[in-house]
Amino acid sequence: MSTYWREKFEQNFLPTETKLGLDEILLEAQDAYLGWLGASLMAFKGEIDEAKLESLDRLFNGEIPMRMAANDCYDYAINGRLRLAKDGAEQTQMNDSWGRLATVVLSARPAIEVFSPRIRGREMVLPTGLEHTLFHALVRARLDLDTHPKFDDNDAVPMFLSGEDNCGYLTLKEIAVLGQMSERAVRNAAQPTAADRLYTRKEQNQTVVDADEALRWLKGRRGFVVTRAD
């Protein structure tokens, strides 16, 4: 399975112990979308004409769907809640929503960095927290694809998530992401003297944790919520 998205969003990842609020993520989703539109106008028209910006926004109708998709992403990554598709129409809508979010966020960073668009009286911010949340969601999917029975039905899960590489294990960094804790704390938990020891093994040149053991250990961490999919 593909690791394309995870590798892209990991490039700008925040410290594993970073905790983000929903309001911050929703604002970044709005800025990513508007910044992407504004930068496109600057690239091809030389300036941001408010009328043209509004026209593009009406054409794409993307601000509200982007915020809704960001909300779903946050809810899965942080709160462990995922709504599964129940039919073909829901599957298409879900795939479009997650795919649009990932694509716009990935495009927004270079667009905002190069053109620094100012829209509605303020500078658009880089979607750093949203990139972090998308990466968090993909790491959770790696775990769920190996341990959650409802993830056996790939048609019910967003393609953005079901396309993850479920190799049967997680790295220490990925466990730190899911636990919203430092990688150092995870390494300490893997020591033989730790009270609730995290059992690791070697996979080629890296230290890894089998998925079932990762889930067992994470259940005891305050920063982790077990996935509920329905």
Rank of each mutant, 00 (worst) to 15 (best):
E113T: 14
V104P: 02
A108T: 06
P117T: 15
A108W: 03
L126A: 05
V104D: 01
T128W: 01
K150F: 09
V157I: 15
A108K: 05
R120Q: 06
D152A: 12
L130A: 07
P149Y: 12
D146T: 14
H148V: 04
R122F: 01
K150N: 10
H132P: 02
E113D: 15
P149E: 13
I119H: 05
A111W: 03
M124S: 06
V104Q: 02
I112R: 08
E113L: 11
D146E: 15
A156V: 11
D155S: 14
M124W: 07
L143W: 00
V114E: 11
P117L: 14
P110F: 13
D153F: 12
S107R: 04
M124L: 13
R109T: 15
V114W: 07
P127I: 04
R142N: 11
H136T: 11
R118A: 14
D153I: 09
G129C: 05
D146Q: 09
M159N: 06
R140Y: 01
P110V: 15
D144C: 13
R142L: 07
N154D: 14
E113G: 10
H148L: 00
E131N: 09
R140G: 04
L145C: 03
A111G: 11
A141G: 03
V105A: 11
R142Q: 14
M159W: 05
I119G: 10
V139R: 00
D155M: 12
G121D: 08
D152T: 09
G129F: 03
R122E: 12
H148D: 08
M159S: 13
P127C: 11
G129N: 06
E131V: 03
